[in-house]
């Protein structure tokens, strides 16, 4: 099974990287850009996992390693059964 986890900074947290990208885009003439937020995508290839199991499994991975719950939020979906 292939799972996609998308991790973003919480909306109230400052994103210096997004701010820098936003500034760079504007400097290049993309004056339409109002704001940029940069996050990350993680693809997990899982073996022998059922539909029910996967929920707790992915949440546990996020809680323990993939996500810093202090400043980040995440959501995930199954991209391949």
């Amino acid at each position: 099974m292939k799972v996609r986890v998308i991790v973003n900074l919480k909306s109230s947290v400052l994103d210096p990287q997004g701010k820098a990208v936003c500034g760079a885009l504007r400097n290049l003439g993309f004056s339409q850009v109002r704001d940029v937020r940069v996050g990350k995508v993680i693809y997990l290839d899982l073996d022998d996992v059922g539909r029910e199991e996967v929920e707790t499994l992915v949440d546990e991975m996020c809680a323990k390693l993939l996500v810093n719950p202090v400043i980040e939020e995440y959501h995930w979906d199954i991209v391949e059964e």
Binding site: L9, S12, V13, L14, D15, P16, K19, A20, V70, I71
Partner: peptide, 12 residues
């Protein structure tokens, strides 16, 4: 209490 923490931006 976690949402209290600020994020720094050294370039700024």
């Amino acid at each position: 209490k976690k949402p209290n923490v600020q994020v720094g931006d050294p370039f700024t």
